[in-house]
Design a protein around this nucleic acid. Structure first.
Lengths: 122, 122
DNA sequence: AGATTATGAATGAATG
DNA sequence: CATTCATTCATAATCT
């Protein structure tokens, strides 16, 4: 939970000694096969896999290299988010004076004005 | 996929007033002290603080920086949820993805909130 | 080598 | 309490 706000960040202890053979990855680096498979799943419509699906996928991808459940989880989160962001960018750059793409943005007639959890709490 | 680089900065609807100097934090950025204290409370067994407790905690944390009740509320929600997910992920691999014996962390009726090191009180 | 880009990771906020 | 979205930070990859 640090994110990075604190400027006084203790430099993470990079695992792995000076041993040359062990890169000691600080973060997961997917192999081509893994990416290919993940993108394939995404293409097939999978957007936010459930815990079970993540488990399943992780297990299969482990044959191509080290990978954990959270990596799969983050991959889908990021991929989806950035795909969405791309679309936003596209529409922002060249605003079509014609009909703008819909994008099911269901907006209730009058949206709730974020009255934060004032409900039972404050 | 950019993310943060300043290729084409898309200024979202930053709420900040026209005032220049104000960083206009769009979202709460906890300080180290605040996080430390929150984690400490969590360690002591506090999981879902009541409205009163939230108020109390918020008041104390305000000495370290700007913070609102909803931030405290959300922090506990998120921390608990993510701690749970972590445990799930750590113990994946083998069977028993379901129905793990969860420890009953009984929440004490009143949690002692340690006063700040140099608090305004004595 | 340093700058830039792509993307993994983290977390605040919100909704169901 | 779970699930999801958005934004940001950190860093591997890549380019120049």
């Amino acid at each position: 939970m640090d994110g990075c706000s604190g400027t006084s960040e203790v430099p993470a202890m990079v695992v792995g000694g000076g041993a040359a053979g062990t890169p000691a990855a600080s973060r997961w680096n997917p192999t081509k096969e893994q990416i290919d498979m993940l993108e394939n799943l995404y293409r097939q419509g999978l957007r936010t896999p459930t815990a079970d699906q993540i488990q399943e996928i992780t297990g299969r991808l482990q044959t191509y290299g080290h990978i954990e459940g959270k990596n799969v989880f983050y991959w889908f989160q990021n991929h989806k988010a950035r795909q969405r962001q791309k679309e936003k960018q596209d529409h922002l750059s060249l605003f079509r004076q014609y009909n703008h793409h819909h994008r099911h943005l269901h907006q209730p007639p009058f949206v709730h004005i974020p009255p934060p959890p004032n409900g039972p709490y404050f």
